[in-house]
């Protein structure tokens, strides 16, 4: 009897916290699905009477009549940004991790630590030189410029993820190949790379989510409507007085959708990336 009471208490506490976590999700989904006739701040907590996707389409397409842009263009910008940036930074991370675990040289640990520091810095501390430099490289305000930025500032975390992963690959395998006469690239291509799928999954999912969710770089490097990523567009949509709150919230859901889908379907790898972010494998 006593045990089941504790059990009950456990479930009650978990349920209370679940409410706290669900509330924002609930509002997002419910508000987005309400028809315009039904949307009212007085009844914001009520369930919708019928399903309706008008808020989503307005957030997606915008309204010329009311004078605001939808987020569809920025959604595509984010896709064009995130896909190459994710792939490139994973490749860099993989090579770096390979070197740092299997081809250690004098000072390689120090170099690793110094690279790692880059993932903790507040980006405010590099943003002014960054703008000036990108301008000189003629990539300021462009998606390629933003890709470059994300690849570079993604080096620390992707290197870390691969390093932690390759540590688990037995070094004997590499040594054996070395003796067999395989060179640096050969070993990578024929031994390491085929084993790297889980590492790539973790690194790419991590980079995908964090680049998709980034705001500061997008805000400062590509604020122009032609190339701004989705978080910048959403923030802009939400700051506008002429945009109804339900449209803002529908926009928020659309913005959150890709990372949420990844989380739902590839949660295992997401979690692994998350735990690595704290340096613990």
């Amino acid at each position: 009897m006593k045990i089941s009471l504790t059990r009950l208490l456990i479930y009650i506490i978990l349920a209370i916290f679940s409410i706290f976590y669900i509330i924002p999700m609930y509002i997002m989904v419910v508000t987005g699905m309400k028809s315009f006739a039904e949307v009212s701040l007085d009844t914001m907590w009520n369930l919708p009477n019928s399903f309706n996707f008008n808020s989503f389409s307005l957030a997606w397409l915008g309204s010329i009549k009311e004078g605001f842009r939808g987020i569809s263009g920025s959604f595509l910008n984010s896709v064009f940004l995130v896909v190459p940036a994710t792939v490139i930074s994973a490749l860099f991370g993989s090579l770096n991790g390979y070197v740092l675990t299997k081809w250690q040289f004098r000072g390689s640990d120090l170099i690793f630590t110094m690279i790692l520091f880059g993932m903790f810095i507040p980006y405010q501390s590099i943003i002014i030189p960054l703008v000036l430099t990108l301008q000189r490289l003629h990539v300021y305000g462009t998606i390629p410029g933003l890709i470059l930025v994300h690849v570079i500032y993604g080096i620390p975390i992707s290197t870390l993820i691969f390093r932690n992963y390759y540590v688990t690959v037995p070094t004997e395998m590499v040594e054996a190949s070395k003796i067999d006469g395989a060179n640096f690239l050969g070993i990578y291509r024929w031994v390491i790379f085929p084993l790297s799928t889980p590492g790539f999954a973790v690194a790419m999912i991590w980079q995908f989510t964090s680049i998709w969710n980034d705001f500061l770089f997008g805000l400062i490097i590509t604020p122009n409507p032609a190339s701004q990523p989705i978080t910048v567009a959403l923030n802009n949509l939400a700051g506008s007085y002429i945009v109804q709150w339900n449209v803002q919230i529908a926009g928020a859901l659309l913005t959150a959708l890709p990372p949420i889908l990844i989380y739902i379907f590839l949660g295992k790898f997401f979690l692994r990336g998350l735990l690595q972010g704290s340096l613990k494998g």
């Binding site: 989510t209 969710n213 959150a256 990844i262």
Partner: peptide, 8 residues
């Protein structure tokens, strides 16, 4: 919530 952007 970890998967969602701070902006969202």
């Amino acid at each position: 919530p970890m998967a969602v952007s701070f902006i969202v």
